[in-house]
């Protein structure tokens, strides 16, 4: 141990792996992963099982529950609705949020604090808090109960989330670059489209991914505003779970697995284009010593 300690002092960066702190950290990660595996695995195994009353595994395996779930829950429609809602929310929240984030990060103007607070509040409030009054208002104007109501409700936390995610990215861009572009005669549009947007691509991707994941997984607001034809997958899953006993448990699990598979595909695609550790800035990777 003492040699390790000495070596650690002379070359701390290389010896991190051996320190007790590392063992604790990796132990925590391993514990979390085992728990995660258990949670996912038990849903997965149950969705393929015939009967499971005790013992480590079900008595037999079948894929019938998937066909069952597909028909009974109308999964094709649910998936279509989910995709429509999330694409619309991501696109709209980026279009509204990115320019606003730029102004808020760079400019100082009268009333800025008030505006900033107004954008922070929806993200700092529980969805149920504003979801109940929002649903009441949307019903009053006839938006709730259909797709447009679900999209509008989901935009409320998404736009501020884009602004919050984008602000550090914008703060890291040197304002001198924009000033130089202005000196060369670029207007606001050109600065935004040709200077800022390319530099902000990592930030925009990060914001889009986070908003996408939040929207597909957003239960409360969709739950409060959706009608029978505008339920997303997660809301339908909740209804079928809370009505336990009507549907076979395995068939609910099959639906859960399909939801999970859809999200995993999304995530893997996203991860091919953006490295989660480099979300805030394109940091220099540490050179090998």
């Amino acid at each position: 141990m003492s040699t390790l300690g000495l070596a650690g002092r002379s070359r701390p960066r290389r010896r991190l792996v051996a320190s007790p702190g590392a063992w604790v950290t990796w132990g925590a990660v391993a514990f979390f992963l085992v728990g995660l595996l258990g949670v996912i695995g038990s849903v997965l195994v149950n969705s393929f099982g015939t009967r499971w009353f005790g013992g480590w595994f079900p008595e037999g395996f079948t894929t019938n529950w998937y066909a069952d779930a597909w028909q009974q829950f109308g999964l094709a429609d649910l998936i279509l609705v989910t995709v429509e809602v999330s694409v619309a929310v991501v696109a709209l929240s980026l279009v509204i949020g990115v320019p606003a984030a730029y102004v808020l990060a760079r400019r100082d103007f009268p009333g800025k604090r008030l505006v900033y607070l107004a954008f922070l509040l929806p993200i700092l409030m529980p969805p149920i808090t504003y979801g109940i009054p929002l649903a009441t208002v949307l019903y009053k104007f006839g938006f709730a109960g259909n797709l447009s109501g679900v999209i509008l409700a989901n935009l409320v936390p998404s736009v501020p989330f884009v602004i919050l995610t984008m602000t550090p990215f914008i703060e890291q861009i040197d304002p001198a670059i924009e000033r130089a572009a202005r000196m060369c005669g670029a207007g606001m549009r050109a600065v935004f489209l040709r200077i800022l947007t390319p530099l902000l691509v990592p930030g925009i991707l990060a914001a889009a991914i986070l908003v996408l994941v939040r929207t597909v997984g957003m239960f409360e607001l969709t739950f409060l505003t959706a009608g029978p034809d505008s339920q997303t997958l997660i809301v339908a899953l909740f209804y079928s779970m809370s009505a336990a006993g009507i549907r076979a448990q395995q068939s609910v699990d099959a639906m859960a697995v399909l939801y999970m598979a859809m999200m995993l595909v999304l995530l893997v695609i996203a991860m091919r284009f953006v490295n989660p550790t480099q979300l805030v800035a394109r940091v220099k990777e540490e050179p090998e010593p």
Binding site: V29, F32, L33, L36, G38, V39, I40, S42, V43, V213, V216, G217, F219, I234, L237, F238, M241, V252, D253, A256, Y259, M260, M263, L264, L266, L267, V268, M271, N275, P276, T277
Partner: peptide, 19 residues
């Protein structure tokens, strides 16, 4: 490892509850 750690976000509270 990063992708695996990020996976639970995809689960959502409802699916986690089921699991």
């Amino acid at each position: 490892l990063m992708i695996v750690l990020v996976v639970p976000i995809t689960l959502g509270t409802v699916l986690t509850a089921e699991g």
